[in-house]
Structure formats: structure tokens, C-alpha cells
Design a protein around this nucleic acid. Structure first.
Lengths: 230, 230
DNA sequence: GCAAAAGTGTTGTGTCTACACCCATGT
DNA sequence: ACATGGGTGTAGACACAACACTTTTGC
């Protein structure tokens, strides 16, 4: 086996989500060149020599948003269908990125946020990637503390509920959300309250996530190991 | 941007698991060349031009086991640390493969099964891959029907329990395993029974998995959508 | 009859949803 | 007072683990 192995080009891509205007939105930029000229596409680009995939996607995201704003980044999958790029043999590794709802990063003029519910036509297989990323987010909201990456440092339970509603796409009650997340030790009250709004109402307590790193909080759905009886 | 993008080599690798001799084992082959000459390594190899990653790993596995024996194959992750191969810039996409316990595929002389509990020193980052693959399997045993890929077409509940015990690494009772899997509609009785063994005992009923494709069976651990009340 | 293996009945526990009710504020 | 939004109390549903008990076989 002394022959040279084949070498594809490799790009990193990210579906970066933020809850804006009550809905889950993703960052897209408008392609200026063929193929798919004029279509919207996910941020990303070629992997540089001896660069890590995660470093690559962070570098490319820098051109679209301040990377410091990305509160969570995780690899989704690598796609290799040879027909996915019409002109070259290219692999793509897709990431899921999350931006907290309290920041509004400056983005270039060719770049903007789009609701995942009503995506424009996307270049390549980017639509599938966005939808797969949303599924990953929805699943992880159920069994991890990943909500920390969507939320500001402090928030009321109503605000957190609105983030969950936007991401999950169905109703969530603040009452039960609180109980689940506090019971699991994911959320804790800061001890302070916010002032009432102009129309009155009881001043809400402020909460924060205990740990701003991804943690699995509901590990064994079933088939748990037996109780340590002695 | 008319300059040529960098091109790494790319390999596909698989941690192929089978329950053998009461334990979870993985398929390894002994490297004949540097680097890591003489160490054990995961099956896999270079991606060919215009080849899909999944096609690539299936092709490479053909040299080690009959691919028809691999009941389930799923992508785990793509690793890109530039130092992972001492001599070249190489990316690797790792897969998890499962082989049912009733087959004993012929393997070449440089290849063999090794208990995951006591792995020999492995080449590259292959040890981490094997352990990550086992974690994926353990998690999916809890919330999907992935057991179908470890089990023969028909089996008794004791036999299935032994497979779960080997994969999960902790005790499982046949009683509760049956109730969980039947309640979820994953398992069904075939209606036939096996004969008693030489030492007696009630003849066990035979069961089968309803669907031999991966299915999520415990989708919403929590934060379920509200009941459709009308 | 007795040991062995399989299978069922039953109880208790923990986690969740749903919903009624109470609390604190502005006007 | 009363509207508004926040928060608590509580009951019921459900899925699960644990374990006692029964069934069916070989010897």
C-alpha cells in the first residue's frame, strides 16, 4: 500500500441558534458565488492545514459573530455524500452552536438571522443540517442542562420558559419547568428579585444555571443499575 | 479566494462490538507497519475518492468480517487533532458497529476479538474511540431498541438479559427487562417455547424484536408536550 | 418429592403533569 | 378593589425496581 490516499476538501459548518423575537433563529449568509449563488448558507468554510475542526469552525464564525458570544458548540455529524457539492469532492463536518438570548452580536451585511420555522431555500444540504441541529437541541433540553447556553446569566422563570417554548416548539409551564430543573440541581435562585413591570404583578425571583458547562442531568431513563443495597 | 484549500487524508474506523463469552468484545487487528507497529488497532482505512464514509467503513470491514453480519452501524464522531497521526495530517471518522451474538464470523489471522474491559495497548487514539463507542451503546440501550443488533433473531429472556448485562456492565433482572421492553412495544413473544435444559426447569418462551431498525422508544424523558386535551 | 429455571402478582417509590389556590405588586 | 403576573400546594398518573410467589420441567 504505497500509493497515495485520496484527499477530499473538508469544510466545517455550524447551525448557530439564538432565540429572537420569541422564535428559534439560525444565522445564515448569502452566497456571492456559484454554486448556489444568491442562496442562503450556513457559516463555515475550508479546514486549514493542521487545523482542528473545532478551531476551524470557531475561526470561520469569527467573521460572522464574535465567537465569545457562542456559549456552546458541539459536533453533530460528518457528511460525505459525493454529490453534495456539484463541483468538488468535499466532506463537511456540521456543528451546533448556541448564543444566549441577551446578546445581539454585530453581523456583516450579507449575514442575518432566520427563523428555523420558515427557512428560505438553503444551499447544499444545509437545510437538513439545520433541522438535525434543532432535533439535537430539543433532545438535549430534555436530559441535560443545555438551556444555560440559550439563557442570560440571570433570568426569571417566565423568561426561561419562553426560551424553552421557542426551542421546543410546544407549550411549557413555568411552574413545572422550575420544579424539574431545581429538583435536578440545574437551576438555583440568585436570591434577588426583579421589580414589577408597569402593569403590576408580583416581582419575580431571579434564577441562574449552577454550572455553565454541558452536563447530563437525567442519565438513566431506564435500566438503571440496581440499588446498592448494602 | 482562488487558492487551493488544504486537503488532509481521511480514514474511517469502526469499533465493532459483539457479546462473546459473557462479555462485550471489540474487533482489533495487529498493525504490521509503523507507526504503532505491533500494536492493536481498530479496523478501517483510507477513504477512497468519491466514496461515502459509510461505504468506506463497510468496505474496510469486509476484509475483517462479513459485512452482512454487522447488524447496526452508526457514526460516532470525527476527530481532527493534528497530532493524532505522527507522520501525516489525517482526520478520522469513527463508527459504532454491532454484531449479533449468534454468529461467529471468520476473521483473518492478524485479527481478533478483545474484551473491552481489558483492552491491550491500542494504536493512535483508538482506545478513546472504543470507550466512547461503548458509552453510546450503553446510553442507547436505555432509550432505543438497539438491543436488536446484539441479539439473535429469537431468544429467551435470560439470554437477552445476559446480553444486556455484558453491554451495560451491571446486573439486569430478566423480570424487569421483559416488562420494560414489552410495555414499550419493542419485544414480542414468538409464541413458541424452547425445550428445558438437561437439569430441568420450565421451558422458556421465545421472544423477538418487533423491528430490526433503530427506533427511539423513550423519546421524552421529561418536558413532554402538554396532553392534547381536545 | 425436590431442585432448577421461568414467569406472574404485587407493593412501594420517585418523577412527572395538571390544576387549584395563594402572594405581591401597580393602578 | 381588582387586574396582572409570580409562586406554592396537592392530587393523580405513570413507569419503574424489588421481591415474594407460582408454574413447569428433569431427575
Amino acid at each position: 500500500m504505497t500509493e497515495e490516499p485520496a484527499r477530499a476538501t473538508h469544510v466545517s459548518l455550524a447551525a448557530v441558534f439564538q432565540v429572537r423575537a420569541g422564535g428559534l433563529q439560525t444565522l445564515l449568509w448569502r452566497r456571492a458565488e456559484a454554486p448556489y449563488e444568491g442562496d442562503w448558507a450556513l457559516p463555515g468554510g475550508y479546514l486549514a492545514a493542521y487545523e482542528t475542526l473545532e478551531a476551524s469552525i470557531r475561526r470561520h464564525l469569527t467573521h460572522k459573530v464574535d465567537v465569545g458570544e457562542v456559549a456552546h458548540l458541539e459536533q453533530l455529524t460528518t457528511i460525505s455524500e459525493p454529490g453534495r457539492h456539484p463541483a468538488e469532492w468535499q466532506l463537511a463536518t456540521a456543528y451546533l452552536g448556541l448564543v444566549a438570548s441577551d446578546v445581539d452580536p454585530a453581523v456583516p451585511s450579507d449575514t442575518g438571522w432566520h427563523p428555523v420555522e420558515s427557512l428560505p431555500p438553503l444551499a447544499f444540504d444545509h437545510r437538513e443540517i439545520v433541522l438535525a441541529a434543532r432535533e439535537r437541541l430539543r433532545a438535549k433540553l430534555s436530559y441535560t442542562n443545555i438551556g444555560f447556553a440559550l439563557a442570560p446569566p440571570e433570568f426569571t422563570l417566565s423568561e426561561l420558559r419562553d426560551l424553552y417554548v421557542a426551542a421546543l416548539g410546544h407549550e411549557v409551564t413555568a411552574t413545572n419547568l422550575q420544579r424539574v430543573l431545581v429538583r435536578r440541581g440545574v437551576l438555583e435562585p440568585t436570591g434577588t428579585r426583579r421589580e414589577s413591570g408597569p402593569v403590576g404583578g408580583r416581582p419575580p425571583a431571579l434564577f441562574q444555571f449552577k454550572r455553565p458547562e454541558l452536563e447530563v442531568t437525567d442519565q438513566f431513563a431506564v435500566l438503571r443499575p440496581p440499588e446498592a443495597s448494602s
